[in-house]
Simulated scan of single mutants.
Amino acid sequence: MISASDLPDTIPIFPLPGALMLPRARLPLHIFEPRYLAMIEDCMKSKTRLIGMIQPSETPLGEKRLHKIGCAGRLTGFSETEDGRYMITLTGISRFRVREEVQGFTPYRRCLVDWAAFARDLSSEEEADPGFDRESFFALLHRYLTALNLSTDWSNLKEAETELLINSLSMLCPLSAEDKQALLEAPTLTTRRETLVTLMEFALRGGAGEDLIQ
């Protein structure tokens, strides 16, 4: 278990559009770019083995930036393919706020980060959502997945604890990068669930003024 005192001031950053990491959730990744292969190798030598997942963004003028809030995952699974690619699993530890990007000699990006606003993420206890209505949520989810012609293992999904259910769906649903950033920044599990519900309902209405998804 990583404590607040273990969290480093500077972490490697993996900007990956649409990839959402959340505390206590697991994210599998396929690593093949040379700079990120080097990042994984350096990560495995570090004490905490943390990598910061973050959404890249683009200004109206086309300038590429990083969102201010990301989530760090600890490298908990690793295998190497015969052709030198890495298959890894990150387990979410805590969200962070980017203070500034660090210039240096690594081929990958690094950032000076602040963890203070997300101390609750480090808890080993799952977060609760007292107002969660599972029946109505699953009815909406069924309509949403059916409309998108997506299938799922309903038996496992319905048996999942609330936090795992909401966070897994937030990570796996085919949402835009900006929508996933909104889910990441949700201050509580209740807010994340409400945001997810709103996004699914919006999609079923066809988005901005389009026809209803059938």
Rank of each mutant, 00 (worst) to 15 (best):
N156H: 11
R26F: 07
R110Y: 02
I93Y: 06
L16V: 10
E58V: 00
Y36E: 05
R205M: 11
D121Y: 14
G206K: 06
F137C: 05
S170W: 13
A116V: 07
L183N: 07
V98K: 02
A119K: 15
P12T: 12
D133S: 07
I31M: 05
S155H: 12
F78D: 04
E82C: 01
D83R: 10
I11G: 01
S57C: 00
A177D: 10
T89R: 11
S79Q: 12
G92D: 04
I88P: 00
L189N: 03
T146E: 08
L16E: 07
A25D: 01
A177Q: 04
I11S: 01
A19G: 02
T48F: 07
D153C: 10
I54H: 01
F105D: 09
P28N: 05
L150R: 14
S170Y: 13
Q181Y: 14
L141Q: 04
R110I: 01
L29S: 00
G84T: 08
W115K: 10
S136L: 04
D153Y: 03
D83V: 03
D129G: 01
C71K: 03
T190P: 05
A25T: 15
S170E: 03
L175A: 05
Q181L: 10
Q55L: 02
L204Y: 09
S46L: 05
I40T: 12
